[in-house]
């Protein structure tokens, strides 16, 4: 059962596969740093994030849409102007 929603809701963020793990930069200061992995013609980096949709909060994983055409749009912020 999913935990009751609270002030903070963890999500998996970027979901590493063996392929993307090897592309992460070497460990620096004990912390693994990420670099850009998205390239045209290459597999989309998978992720899971918390979301607002259809009146409620839920976590959305990109690969749940595998098998369909997907458009991912990043934008700078809610209530911005453009």
């Amino acid at each position: 059962m999913e935990k009751k929603d609270g002030c903070v809701k963890p999500s998996k963020g970027v979901i590493q596969t063996e392929e993307t793990k090897s592309a992460a930069e070497p460990v620096q200061n004990g912390k693994e740093t990420q670099k850009m992995l998205a390239k045209v013609g290459k597999p989309a980096p998978d992720f899971e994030l918390s979301a607002f949709f259809e009146g409620g909060f839920k976590n959305v994983r990109l690969s749940d849409h595998k098998g369909k055409w997907i458009v991912v749009c990043f934008y700078p912020g809610d209530f911005t102007f453009v």
Partner: peptide, 20 residues
């Protein structure tokens, strides 16, 4: 700025990125 700028990606049914 601590934000994601305006980027959009088209992903095909095989989960490959086609355009950005």
């Amino acid at each position: 700025a601590g934000v994601d700028i305006r980027g959009r990606f088209i992903i095909d049914p095989d989960f490959n990125i086609r355009a950005m």
